[in-house]
Amino acid sequence: MSQYDSGILVVVMERVPTFKVMKTFGLLLLSLVTTAQNTVDDKPVSKGEELQFKLTYGWFTVGRGSFKISDDYVLKDGKECIEINIHGKTAGLAGVFSKVDDRWGAIVDKETFLPHYSYRDLSEGDKDLDEKTYFDYDSMSILVESTSTSNPESNGTKYFELDGSSYFDMMGGLMFARSVDYRSMQKGDTIRLDAFFDEEFYDFKMIYHGIEKTKTKIGKIYCHKVVPIMEKNSVFKGKDPVKFWISADANRLPLKVAAKMNFGKAQVELTSYKNAKSGIDFK
């Protein structure tokens, strides 16, 4: 890396508000979810599935992440559930300027993907957060426990009421998105969803853009393209700034997220996978 490239990376990392950006990408994953569409009967859930991702800003690889489903089912309220764990951290020279080491996880129903429990253990530069969220469907409430040494005023327990809708967390939302029956949809269809994330309720909308052959890190393959409707904000730039691609096969792998942001272009891309449930068929 040249001195010029290093200088650009310093500027980019200094301008990126890590907690805000990580929250934003969490919301982007959630925006893939829809409660208004049918799901396939043969859901792409494979015990022991592992996915590896990388995050780039412009030319630079600044982070890597992993997504893993538990090797065995977990019983919760008498139902079989899967445990999901995500680990994301800075990579390469980016770690010198803004070190990120984040862990996210959840226990979700293996059929509906609705969450029973989720957590966030975040360490980003001089900021930290240890958060546990419990979903109680008998009392229709959510309990959130937060601990932070960098922001002690946020410590404590909070309660939120559910209004009867199906609210997803980030991990369950991503799995539900992979189960949507996209082939029953038409270009231009609008999809809506309800989600709970970072102590807030969200009502998302997105547009289905059909199937297209897309260049990805695991090959040039056919994908379902989805574009969320984004409200004007200080993070993203231009019209339709965010786009998603999900493999058009039975596994529905989350292949790529591309975003035009005010400080440059960012991408999250799948780089490898193993223990996928179905044989690979992207046609």
Rank of each mutant, 00 (worst) to 15 (best):
G95Q: 06
T18F: 14
T61A: 11
D71M: 00
P115C: 02
D102Q: 00
G88T: 06
T61R: 13
E80N: 10
F60W: 08
K76R: 11
H87K: 07
V62R: 07
V108E: 12
V100D: 11
S98E: 14
K54R: 05
R103N: 06
D128A: 03
P17Q: 15
G95C: 05
P44F: 03
G58R: 07
L114Y: 00
V11R: 12
D42N: 07
T56R: 15
K110P: 07
E83R: 04
M13K: 03
C81Q: 14
T34V: 02
L9M: 06
K47V: 05
V100G: 09
S46H: 04
G26F: 01
K89M: 09
D71L: 02
D41L: 00
E111A: 06
H87C: 04
L93R: 15
D101T: 00
E50D: 09
N38Q: 07
N38W: 14
M140N: 11
D109S: 08
I69M: 00
D130G: 06
I84W: 08
E49C: 02
L51W: 04
T56P: 09
T24P: 12
F97T: 01
S139C: 07
L27T: 05
S46C: 01
G63W: 02
P115Y: 10
K110V: 02
Y137H: 12
W104E: 13
S123E: 11
N85W: 03
M140V: 05
E83N: 05
K47P: 11
A94R: 01
D77F: 03
S6Q: 09
R103I: 00
Q52N: 13
A94D: 08
M22F: 08
F25G: 12
Y57E: 09
K132W: 12
L93Q: 07
G48S: 07
G58F: 03
D41N: 11
G26E: 04
F60T: 01
Y137W: 10
G88Q: 15
K110Q: 14
D128S: 04
S139G: 05
Y73W: 06
E124F: 04
W104P: 12
L27I: 02
G26N: 02
R64G: 00
G78C: 00
D130T: 03
K89Q: 15
V62Y: 04
S139P: 13
D71R: 07
M22E: 11
T133S: 15
D71Y: 04
N38H: 15
K79I: 01
W59K: 14
K127E: 10
G7H: 08
G26P: 02
F67P: 01
F67N: 00
L114V: 02
G78T: 00
K76F: 01
R15L: 15
L32R: 15
M22V: 03
V11N: 12
H87D: 09
L27G: 15
M22Y: 14
T39V: 14
N38R: 15
F25D: 13
G95S: 07
L55I: 00
T61G: 13
D42H: 08
